[in-house]
């Protein structure tokens, strides 16, 4: 079942069929399962009529979609065991927060299984999870955690922001022979964009430049990338917006080259700040392009505490496109931006 023939060399189409992020995920899953009989999906409520917010509904091969008990830790081990026994599982979590009950399996097993045996074996396992807040969902149903997973050697971390990326990156993740944590922001599910009908894979570890600009480099992934794009377009800011698409591997070459041109770096990271993705990008760029930086780099993200529930507190906790625009404008004016 060769997957390499689907490697995509073209960029996102600007026209053509428009489908939602959710439908792009559904189409990718369906095409993966049709193309390769080794692909199956497993997860809590993966087979119910809601179909994981629609991303699993009406699949061609329903017999390869398995619901599970609320046993995420063992089910992760089950998915790993299946991956080591000839299959290519997609393990799905309705919320990334539920995935945390499986951290022994994810960190000690899934992530380590290749290194532990001298990288002699393949672990073709995708762990999908829906991230981000709902509506008053509070601290245990709103996390994103991409920076945390990326901390662990042995896990690739993918965070698509557009329908086109969602399909191509999910197919690339299924085609990959190493474990991939694939994080989908629930607020992106209804966004639409041009998505080719045919099966294609996008490279893991290649950033996408969402907006060209000369005076400031903004690095943002997932929903943050879409919010940053809105901010830049609405306020017509001279900003280069880079969506890394994969947190790990991270396309530092593209980011560094941009900063060397613009002289300014802001990371919009919708995640916990301490030791996170934003910190990593700032540190790596500082190491590589210290002399290019005209101002201290800036990180924008969540406060260093659990998510609240009350709407008043939520609106204060979460960044918005307007707040991003204010911060970018301030940075372009040379002002100190509170992070």
């Amino acid at each position: 079942m060769p997957w390499s023939k689907f490697d995509c060399t073209y960029t996102a189409p600007t026209g053509g069929r428009q489908i939602t992020y959710c439908d792009a995920l559904r189409e990718a899953t369906d095409q993966a399962m049709v193309h390769d009989p080794r692909v199956f999906a497993i997860g809590l409520d993966a087979d119910d009529r809601f179909g994981v917010f629609g991303s699993m509904r009406d699949l061609t091969h329903k017999e390869r979609v398995l619901g599970t008990p609320i046993s995420e830790n063992a089910m992760t081990g089950v998915a790993l065991g299946a991956a080591l026994s000839g299959l290519r599982p997609i393990h799905i979590h309705l919320r990334v927060d539920f995935m945390l009950t499986a951290m022994d399996q994810i960190v000690n097993y899934v992530a380590k299984w290749q290194d532990m045996f001298g990288r002699q074996g393949k672990v073709p396992l995708v762990i999908r999870a829906i991230v981000g807040r709902g509506w008053g969902c509070g601290a245990q149903h709103s996390q994103t955690l991409h920076g945390w997973f990326a901390h662990i050697p042995g896990l690739k971390v993918v965070t698509p922001s557009t329908p086109y990326d969602a399909k191509g990156l999910l197919l690339a993740s299924v085609a990959d022979d190493s474990p991939v944590v694939f994080l989908e922001h629930r607020w992106l599910y209804k966004n639409t964009g041009a998505v080719p009908q045919e099966l294609y894979t996008l490279p893991l570890g290649k950033a996408n430049v969402l907006h060209r600009g000369d005076r400031l480099t903004v690095v943002a992934n997932s929903l943050a990338a879409m919010h940053a794009l809105t901010a830049i377009e609405q306020h017509d800011l001279d900003v280069e917006l880079i969506d890394p698409r994969t947190i790990k591997p991270l396309d530092l070459d593209t980011i560094t080259a941009s900063v060397q041109r613009t002289g300014r770096l802001m990371v919009v990271d919708y995640d916990f700040p301490f030791g996170g993705f934003g910190a990593e990008v700032v540190a790596a760029v500082t190491e590589r392009a210290f002399d290019s930086l005209r101002q201290p780099p800036v990180r924008l993200g969540f406060p260093d505490r659990g998510m609240p529930s009350s709407g008043v507190l939520e609106r204060a906790y979460y960044p918005t496109p307007d707040r991003l625009a204010q911060a970018m404008t301030a940075m372009l004016l040379g002002e100190v931006v509170p992070s």
């Binding site: 830790n73 081990g77 089950v78 998915a79 790993l80 065991g81 299946a82 026994s85 022994d104 097993y109």
Partner: peptide, 17 residues
């Protein structure tokens, strides 16, 4: 304990295949 689950995954693979 954890490797118990992996054996169950191998069993699932055998069943599905």
């Amino acid at each position: 304990g954890g490797s118990i689950a992996l054996a169950v995954g191998a069993g699932l693979s055998a069943q599905l295949q």
